[in-house]
Design a protein around this nucleic acid. Sequence first.
RNA 1: GCGGGCGUGAUGGAAUGGUAGACAUACCAGACUUAAAAUCUGUUGGGCCUUGUGCCCGUGUGGGUUCGAGUCCCACCGCCCGCACCA
Length: 848
Amino acid sequence: MSRYTAAEIEANWQKAWNEAGIFRAASSSEKPKYYVLEMFPYPSGRIHMGHVRNYTMGDVIARHKLATGHNVLHPMGWDAFGMPAENAAMAIGGHPKDWTYANIADMRDQMKPLGLSIDWSREFATCDPEYYGQQQALFLDMLKAGLVYRKNAVVNWDPIDMTVLANEQVIDGKGWRSGADVERRELTQWFFAISDMAEELLGALDGLENWPAKVRLMQENWIGKSRGLQFAFGLIDGPDGHDRIDVYTTRPDTLMGASFVGISPDHPLTKHLEADNAELAAFCADVRKGGTTEEALEKAEKRGFDTGLRVRHPFDTAWELPVYVANFVLMDYGTGAIFGCPAHDQRDFDFATKYELPIVATYLPSEDSNPELTEAYVPTKTDKVYYNKGFAGDTWQTGNQAVDAAIDFCEAQGVGQGVTKYRLRDWGLSRQRYWGCPIPVVHCDTCGVVPEAKENLPIRLPDDVTFDIPGNPLDRHPTWRNTSCPKCGADALRETDTMDTFVDSSWYFARFTAPHATTPTDLAEAEYWMNVDQYIGGIEHAILHLLYSRFFARAMQITGHLPKKAIEPFNALFTQGMVTHEIYQTMGDNGRPVYHLPEDVKDGKLTDGTEVQIVPSAKMSKSKKNVVDPAQIISAYGADTARWFVLSDSPPERDVEWTAAGAEAASKHLARVYRIVSDIVASNDADVPDADEALLREMHKAIQAVSAGVEAFGFNAAIARLYAFTAALGKSNAGTAAKRQAASALAQLMSPMTPHLSEELWSMLGHSGLIATAPWPVADPAMLVDAAITLPVQVNGKRRAEIQVPPDMPKEEVEKLALGLDAVQRALDGGTPKKVIVVPGRIVNVVV
RNA sequence: GCGGGCGUGAUGGAAUGGUAGACAUACCAGACUUAAAAUCUGUUGGGCCUUGUGCCCGUGUGGGUUCGAGUCCCACCGCCCGCACCA
């Protein structure tokens, strides 16, 4: 008997698919289109199990859609610009371009053995001039449409390396290479005007029904629409030109609890005062140290500097409040000034305690509660709130109702206006780095900032650059910068900033619909293929990448590069979990752990017998060495085993732990299926009506359950069902004809997950043509209904018995039957049932 | 710090508000074998004794809603993701 040899089978069928060209997508088709896309990879050099999981899930969807009569687009590309290429050039020499393209070639070679149903004819990398040139054209159109502008923005500045750092390069407030204290510094940067679309991006979330609710909620919170009060504190004896401090607050209902006013170190008033106050200048310089991330700012110790200035409370001119420059007040949000209400905000409470400022409660959980607070009182959702110092009576509650009432009251009193604001900031796209898409503008002494002419695109990156010193090589390139002004023809300088790599990934999905077009998109192709019907990727992209892509879809519609239907580019989104692995470590001489690759550990020991410490599973990462190389798994077990395992053990949205035992089990199961089907093919048993019927019923139930699982991203549940169906088939004593029918269905149901094995089985069972394009089996509803069902019978919610009843038995009869049971009578213990709840097909509950 | 998510046997996990632990792993027992591997079969949440179609407990902790809660609500604990220049 022949054995299951994955390597041979997989190579053969991949060749057959290629020759048949079944994965090439053409926009001319009578079938309904289906566009399935996985977030494209960064070409780091090696594919990892996370990629295998992501692309296998997409492949299951793509293959299922192909089998259900769709015209499927399933492309692949490379998110190829970014810092690691420059880091590699710095660390090991060479050129980012060579490094990147070599990595792409390697990763493509590692990916192809997985047998993914990808249309490789559409492949591109974002660092191809054919791609980034179109991106430059897009940028120019957006510039023309007023969607791009320049303004100052704060960056991380390394004062020793004299270079801008990415947040990732700032470690504990210090530069990663120089170790210098990082400073926040302003630079003029290009911005996309995404905040103008805040309301639109927020409102349209409601229509994204096939996105996870958590992603919509995260985007909603990120956009951060708030209604609040904008008003002014009158400044007493302020310096020239400063007679008030404008404040925006979302909590005007706590205005009577105000205890101080805080202004940002970057506030105009601060800058004014700083000029002739050395002490304040030193304070500001000090708080400007450290990185720019919101996390760093929020976690930093709250510090303030008393300016000595005082403001008047708007409702009581005799009430004066001190003005502090405070490091936790952001210039980017609101007006760059806040009022502090220590009683109801823990941050303000800490600040007030530190600087001995009054703490005035405006509301409390009850009338008699003690207003001497030891921490800020922030009502929980269930607290009833009593006002003791509201300013328009004591009838308000907290929440929106109180905020609205406070705004109305303030407006009536002529103190400020209700204002809607968004947390969403404009998207700074300038990067002071080489390996990115050049921003296509020139700086001309006469004409200022001038867009490049489209006929000069693509503005190509120069190849002759070095990375031996920090900073942007474009900036110090001897000739690249020198150009002429597209407007007046005079000598001019190129912009040397390149674009954020998020720009590259914000429209690649549109480019896949016409990857070779000489414009960013081909409208007819986009009209046919858009939207992406199913997008799949990691939850880590829930906010930025997806929000930026939604913005770009709108921008591309405004600039005429996408049809109206593509305003929301992703019809359905699925966020998959990570692949994790245990970490194996021993203690090194320096007291730090030394990590070991899983392949070097057997039964908890290294090859030399040293025991390793096992740390619970975490995301696979090179630094912890808890990685498994997909290429090794494929050569050991085959691609189908790798695919089967990453789908089988966990729900797709959750993390899956890679275990050698799990891979082994997957491999054994596929061999078992192969053996069972081989035996069936070799058999010649007569029909056995009862057994045949039972097996075919199992088959239809499996078709039903697996189809539902595949469609609803319940891959693990679908696979569990396939295990059960395989067992039923293996044990069945049905005749050969019924078994062949069931085996054919099994092969088809497995085909999205294990496409190679399924093709082999399909061919063994005597079918002609490819299983990949064979019509998906359909369950016969009549075969799904059983003659009798089992109903659990509960007494007061505890299961006491079960009864077998026909599925359509009337409620009254079920009730009578249940009450007649010995077990129920015993549990009733002579009591009379108050009521009996019968949920048809589900349960009976007798309530005493 | 802020926003979001998750938490179920020894392990991964299953369960439209309706029999908690499907399916798989591991363990144990059995069959086959000279033996091992492979394969096949069976058992396995904890406890009780009266061994029954038995009873009690059990889904991070504490409360609540409901005839009924792993599932919904509130509070807390732990872990994970994101925080705008990582991709």
